[in-house]
Design a protein around this nucleic acid. Structure first.
Length: 288
DNA sequence: CTCCAGGTACTAA
DNA sequence: TTAGTACCTGGA
C-alpha cells in the first residue's frame, strides 16, 4: 500500500486542502502545487500526483515516513469513521459536500501555542502570525532553493519577553503564549498530559492562562487523540443552533456533551465536517 | 473608516 | 453562577 522507495503514498479519500489548510493546523503553505508544512524540527512536502496518490518528503532528514504516517493519522479506519458518524441528513450532506476531511495528529507544543494565538483571530490572521513567529524565531531550512522556517520550540519562546511577542503582533495573547511556553518547556505539563483521560487533560489545559474550553478541546482533538469531542467555536455553535435546534445560549459543557453523545466515538470528524459545511454554506443554512 | 475575528479573563451583580 | 465587557491587531 505504501511504496516507500519512491516516496509515493497511496492516499485515497484524503482531502489534503481542507485538512491541512482548513483551520485545525496553521503551519501549511500551498506553493507551486505542493503543500509545505513547518514543524519544530522539520519541513514536510506533500504533492498530489493524482486524486489518490501523493509524493512526500521530509527535510532536512529525508524519508521520515514514520512522522508522516503519524501526523496524517493514517492508522485511523476512515470508512469506519464515516459509518459511525453518519447519523442524519445534515451530517450526510456535510460528508458528501465537504468530502474527505480528516483529523490530523499534531505535536502537543505546537498545537497548544498555535491555538493560544488563534484566540479572537480569523484563520488567515492566525496563519500569518504563526508564520511570522517561525520566520523570526525558528530555524531556516532550505528546500529546493526556497527558505522555510521551523516552528519555534516552547523552550525558544519561553526565553522571549512579552514585548518581543507584542512586536510580532500577538497582542494581548503575548503573556499567555509566554506563560504556556514556560509550562511546556518545564516538562511538568508535557510529561503528564499524555497519560490523562480527556476530562483530566482538559482540566490541566484550562489552567493555562489563555486556554479556555474551546482551545482546550482543540488540543484534545487535534493533538492528544481524543476523538469523542469536538471544539465548540462560533461555527459549531451555528451548527447546533441552526441545524440541530439547540439553544445557542446553552453552556459550553452542555453543548459539548450533546455533540459527544450524539456522534459518539468519532465526534471529532463530525465536528470538522459540519464546521466546514456550515462555513461554506452559511447563507443557505441559516435560520432567519 | 468600521466592524469583526475558529475566545478568554476579569468584574460586578 | 451568570451576564457584560475589554482586549491587540489584521482582515474584509
Amino acid at each position: 500500500m505504501y511504496n516507500l522507495s519512491m516516496n509515493i503514498l497511496n492516499l485515497p479519500n484524503y482531502n489534503l486542502s481542507k485538512t491541512l489548510l482548513g483551520g485545525q493546523a496553521f503551519n501549511w503553505d500551498f506553493i507551486d502545487n505542493s503543500y509545505y508544512g513547518y514543524f519544530e524540527d522539520k519541513i514536510i512536502k506533500l504533492k498530489e500526483l493524482s486524486s489518490d496518490t501523493v509524493e512526500w518528503q521530509t527535510f532536512p532528514e529525508q524519508d521520515d515516513f514514520e512522522f508522516i504516517y503519524k501526523y496524517l493519522n493514517l492508522e485511523i479506519d476512515y470508512s469506519k469513521v464515516l459509518l459511525e458518524i453518519n447519523k442524519d441528513m445534515h451530517i450526510n450532506s456535510a460528508i458528501s459536500k465537504v468530502k474527505n476531511i480528516r483529523i490530523l495528529k499534531q505535536d502537543f507544543s505546537q498545537t497548544t501555542l498555535s491555538f493560544i494565538l488563534s484566540s479572537h483571530k480569523n484563520i488567515k490572521a492566525v496563519r500569518k502570525i504563526v508564520k511570522d513567529m517561525s520566520i523570526k524565531y525558528g530555524n531556516k531550512i532550505t528546500v529546493e532553493n526556497r527558505s522555510f522556517y521551523t516552528f519555534p520550540t516552547a523552550l525558544r519562546i519561553s526565553k522571549l519577553n512579552e514585548n518581543d511577542l507584542r512586536n510580532l503582533g500577538a497582542g494581548f495573547r503575548s503573556k499567555y503564549l509566554l506563560n504556556a511556553a514556560k509550562s511546556i518547556s518545564n516538562g511538568d505539563l508535557t510529561d503528564k498530559i499524555g497519560k490523562l483521560n480527556a476530562d483530566a487533560a482538559r482540566d490541566h489545559l484550562t489552567k493555562l492562562s489563555g486556554v479556555g474550553d474551546k482551545i482546550a478541546d482543540c488540543i484534545l482533538t487535534f493533538s492528544l487523540g481524543f476523538y469523542n469531542v469536538t471544539p465548540i467555536d462560533i461555527w459549531a455553535l451555528r451548527v447546533l443552533s441552526d441545524l440541530y435546534n439547540l439553544n445557542s445560549k446553552s453552556k459550553y459543557s452542555y453543548l459539548r456533551e450533546w455533540y459527544s453523545s450524539y456522534f459518539g466515538e468519532y465526534t471529532a470528524w463530525a465536528g470538522q465536517f459540519l464546521f466546514e459545511y456550515v462555513r461554506e454554506n452559511y447563507k443557505e443554512i441559516r435560520t432567519p
